[in-house]
Design a protein around this nucleic acid. Structure first.
Lengths: 152, 152
DNA sequence: ACCATTTTATCATAACACTGACAATCAGTA
DNA sequence: TACTGATTGTCAGTGTTATGATAAAATGGT
């Protein structure tokens, strides 16, 4: 039986690869004064504007309280607005501002570029494999644990 | 040209897979009142006891200030001790307590088990591919950016 | 021996992610 | 109608991660 080696364990590799990608992407986002999660929220809103915080949480697999904070910061930066849903006074609908819409093309291009740079050492097959396998883990997680996301 | 889709982007997949693995592992660690990074630090010390905080930071690819906090909490829990290096009075040497040594076998077994559960839907080949590709990204990062870790 | 630089660690601040608790609202039922 | 229960959002607190600033100790050159 082999001895346990943290630095080869999947959990550690995932944490560190995420950390690396994230810090790399963060540098690219510096000129916009945005963070990766803030970018992700914008990206989901580019696809569909006017989501509620709960819906954003479902898209992003992120806790309500975390979403709340990200919306706060984007709102402060003038990229989104909170507006009461006339049909349900509990919920806020999150809308992009014109400034946020204007950033879409440039930032999506930048995100695509970042991925190519980080995965430059991989073959096309490896890139495809990696994304397929990660997707497979997440899909299985969603299937076995319902919405596996935190706080259910 | 295809439209950009965040939920299929590598950065998002890495973030969410890490988040899922981490929350899964965290549940298993609950009975020990430990977090995944705290476990990782113990795991590195099981391999080599008496590292300095800087050395731990290099092993774990983690910022000095972050290491400081993790050591604080492990120290409070009575799992490690800080001891001044007689050869260099600036540095602390971090040593495991008997209680921490006693946990090794049980926790390494638990960590191995957690990985099998999270990757149950993958073939052996896919598991091996995944780890190999992640390792490849990290090794290239270390090579091109020196020690890519934060704060250099 | 002195001075500048580097190294090690800490503090303050910020973002993100969670839990648990709470208030307000909605929806279904007695 | 009133009561119960679920949903939506916030707040307080904890932990992990980073930056930037500071202090203490070591190192290297003159």
């Amino acid at each position: 039986m082999e001895r346990y080696e943290v630095e080869k364990s999947l959990g550690f590799l995932l944490a560190k690869t995420h950390q690396y990608f994230s810090s790399f992407f963060k540098e690219k986002l510096n000129k916009y004064s945005l963070t990766p999660p803030q970018f992700a929220m914008l990206a989901f809103l580019w696809k569909r504007d006017g989501l509620s915080q709960i819906q954003l949480g479902n898209c992003m697999n992120t806790d309500r309280t975390t979403i709340s904070g990200i919306v706060d910061r984007l709102e402060k930066d003038g990229l989104v607005t909170r507006r009461r849903d006339p049909e349900d006074r509990r919920t806020y609908l999150i809308n992009l501002t014109p400034r946020a819409f204007a950033l879409q093309d440039e930032m999506e291009e930048m995100a695509t570029q970042a991925k190519y740079e980080v995965t430059a050492m991989l073959s096309d097959g490896e890139k495809e494999q990696l994304e397929r396998i990660l997707r497979k883990i997440l899909d299985a997680a969603a299937a076995t644990r319902g919405c596996w996301s935190p706080s259910k």
